[in-house]
Nucleic acid binder design. Sequence first.
DNA 1: AAATCACATATCCTATAGGATATAGGATTC
DNA 2: GAATCCTATATCCTATAGGATATGTGATTT
Lengths: 240, 240
Amino acid sequence: MGEVQVRPQRQTLADKTYDELNSRIMQSVLPPGAKLSIDGLARQMAISQTPLREALARLEAEGLVERRPLSGYTVTPLLTTEEFNDLFDLRLLMEPLAASRAAGRAGKFHMTGSGEELRVRARTPEYNADAKLSQLAFTQADAKFHASVAEYSGSGVLSKAIRRLDAHLHLHRAYIAPESIGETEAEHLAVAEAIIAQQPLAAEAAMRRHLELSRVRHAAAFTAAEAAAAPKPKRARASR
Amino acid sequence: MGEVQVRPQRQTLADKTYDELNSRIMQSVLPPGAKLSIDGLARQMAISQTPLREALARLEAEGLVERRPLSGYTVTPLLTTEEFNDLFDLRLLMEPLAASRAAGRAGKFHMTGSGEELRVRARTPEYNADAKLSQLAFTQADAKFHASVAEYSGSGVLSKAIRRLDAHLHLHRAYIAPESIGETEAEHLAVAEAIIAQQPLAAEAAMRRHLELSRVRHAAAFTAAEAAAAPKPKRARASR
DNA sequence: AAATCACATATCCTATAGGATATAGGATTC
DNA sequence: GAATCCTATATCCTATAGGATATGTGATTT
């Protein structure tokens, strides 16, 4: 009975559609502000409208898309500076707690194997020739690490809350400078080692430090992107 | 920004269905664990399956119902003791922050009118002859107060996160002892006054105190309800 | 020339029907 | 007597069609 089936239930079409749309949004194939035509998407993906609607309703509840009742869905726009700061305030509240709890629980259950997994997750993938592709790999690895720490906290509610916040941040990860990937990896490893060593206070501090540095890194790229976006309303979407 | 139109867009059938189901779950007309038959609900509510599915997908994303792919939806069961404690840990992290921020923002915008509103929200409704009905009124007022404080924090992400947590707690409010309603009201008022007086530290402390007392009150009723539920695995039926 | 109004189109919203699957009950076998 | 297999039903999942609404274009008026 050691093999716990993670996905015992088969994937329905609505699930696959949800994953696909989620993936497209994360990869900016569907950029923020993009209009999502139900009819058009259904034709393009060769499915009917019902499962598509179900997927969109879930995405809306998670805040990744917005809905205007008789007008259509759009991808949620990038965070404003204010929202961005609020988001990091919340992360600084929740994620250090998660790291602390994970370190406290590290003794229970066979953490040896899990610890190794955490160490692997902390490591970011190597550079690839394709810059865009390696960016994507980095953002996914980053999100996965934070999700793992949240998971090891043992608190389901905490884990879900963190994952939800992370989803909104995902778009901004694309703007991070490639040079800082190394820094991120080092900070992740510091968190992972503290957890494996079962030192809650150290883990909490390491996570806090990582988030504060991460906030600075993001903020730099963030303001730059905002400045670039403001004077160039090329997609003059009157989505209002 | 005095009169912000809360519902500018017209309500679609899926929205109404969502509200109706949400309401039924909150009132325990659909108790935890109840099976939700899509076909049956559609007939009972005299609507078709498509808007119903959309509403259920949203409820699932918010964690109020669970889905098993080719088997059907069920109302999410009550929280376990562990989950309950984790939930309050999170509330103790987020809501005092919200209260503090609300107090800090109380100066900006004409808080006079809003302050009055907050004071009203802090007040719980009077006892009614119908005990069950007055219970419901209390739970709604309680949730509304916390949502208001969260809203006045000025942080959209914080507000959403708090509301989501509150939704899960809603079911447990029904088990609170009627005698403690007065205590709750006094604590709410303390929070409200501190916010109106623009004293962030006091507001934070008042909210923390309220939550800690609230946790004790809930916990007492909670263990009692758990003991009562354990030996009686009755299967709640939804519709037919 | 700017604003307003009317009309046509594309899209969304809702309803219904058919195919596929899980669950429950009964008969059979060891 | 207990477990297994099989069959029937209810339910879910997906697809398609029709009615209702918002948006954009063009002509008209001031």
